[in-house]
Design a protein around this nucleic acid. Structure first.
Lengths: 114, 114
DNA sequence: AATCTATATCGGTGATTGCCGATATGGATG
DNA sequence: CATCCATATCGGCAATCACCGATATAGATT
């Protein structure tokens, strides 16, 4: 029960839902997400930790970057169903549509190399 | 988007999930829920308000009592799906099982008439 | 090995939330 | 119409959370 409550809490935040919807497009690193969300890098990192802790997303280090992506082939029924619902939801939302347009234009190299 | 976030928040609380699972058994008034949850009456009332506001439950005044029940034939896809998932979830949980045993024994008259 | 660079973690702050006891409300009863 | 009773609302308190800037970390590059 506590684990599912933790999942509902993870899903109760606008920026975390935006992240999940962004990851539907493709795996993204922290700085890409950060650029779209327009919050502090530490905040993006925290949100990713919350989503990862409950099993909604996973990460994979690749050279300089940590790529985050939606969990695939999830065994947990509850998490799988929630991901399915989220995939069907929010697609008409103005912010989500704008985010989606941005994520398709994004160029990691121009964003992330200081 | 905000409405769905509100729904996730409503689902992010142990006592509110217990209420939803209790209402799967039958409609219940505040004092019955109260007796099972063992929290202050005002707290139970607050929780019911939160669940009702997002459309997960409804209420109907009948003589002295306000009966709360799970929303039926819900048009909103998101709410309907969440109710479906909740119906499938938590059934192995110790607290939920105990609550379920209690709700089948409960006698409104012995509980609610001061 | 020294230095970059992307990301994670830390400490602090304001906002939100769950809880309670006390009180208000409003429909039912006498 | 006065009273009763179940429920709703209010005010206050402690815990949790999202946010930030600053700093730590660790893998990649030189």
């Amino acid at each position: 029960m506590d684990e599912k409550i933790k999942t509902f809490k993870a899903l109760s935040d606008k920026n975390r839902l935006r992240i999940l919807k962004l990851l539907e497009a493709k795996p993204l690193c922290v700085c890409e997400l950060n650029a779209i969300l327009e919050i502090a890098q530490s905040s993006t990192s925290q949100h990713l930790k919350v989503l990862k802790d409950v099993g909604l997303i996973k990460d994979k280090k690749q050279s300089y970057w940590v790529n985050y992506y939606l969990a695939q082939n999830v065994k947990d029924n509850f998490i799988r169903e929630q991901l399915k619902i989220i995939a069907k939801s929010f697609n008409d939302d103005a912010v989500i549509k704008k985010d989606n347009r941005m994520v398709r234009k994004i160029n990691r190299k121009s964003l992330c190399c200081k």
